[in-house]
Structure formats: structure tokens, C-alpha cells
């Protein structure tokens, strides 16, 4: 499956089918990530169920602490 993640086209392995799997794939802790698919934000309790599809535009924002 091919998705546009943070503006870059990325080929995802077959086992990545949900938002939760996507975050695990990128080693991002799901409680501190904000995910938007096709301009629509995904509530955190939907990460396990929410499927991703070929061609989705996905934005993943992670929080950092520095300043």
C-alpha cells in the first residue's frame, strides 16, 4: 500500500492496515501522536479500528519537549 505521509510518498508493508499498526511501524507512541487522514483527525480511541487505504494522505504529528 502506498500512502502520502507528512508529504512524502511511502510504500507501507502489507501488515500495516490500521492507524495503530502505522504508528507501531514508525515507532511512535500512540498516546502522544496526533494523526490526520485526508484532512480528518482520528480520535485516539479509534486508532486500533481505523483502517488506512491506498492513496491516503496521512499527517502524523508527534510532540517534543525541548525549548
Amino acid at each position: 500500500m502506498r500512502c502520502i505521509i507528512n508529504g512524502e510518498t511511502i510504500e507501507l508493508p502489507h501488515h500495516v492496515r490500521t492507524v495503530a499498526q502505522l504508528l507501531r511501524h514508525f515507532h511512535i507512541h500512540e498516546k502522544i501522536a496526533i494523526v490526520e487522514i485526508n484532512m480528518d483527525i482520528v480520535p485516539k480511541d479509534n486508532y486500533e479500528q481505523r483502517a488506512i487505504a491506498d492513496g491516503d494522505r496521512i499527517e502524523i504529528v508527534h510532540f517534543v519537549g525541548g525549548g
Partner: peptide, 30 residues
Amino acid sequence: YGACVGSYGLSYVIIPHETPCLRCLLEEVP
């Protein structure tokens, strides 16, 4: 809120009674 590391940064305005607060966005302290 403002934070940065490397060449990456974020900002977000929290307005009480209106926008989600930081705890809504972050379910736990990273």
C-alpha cells in the same frame, strides 16, 4: 505551547472553554 528539537518545531494555542487542552491532545506525559 511551543517546543522544538533538531529542526522540528510545534506550536498550539489553548483557549480555555474553547479549544482542546494539552491533556486532551496528549493522553500521557511523553
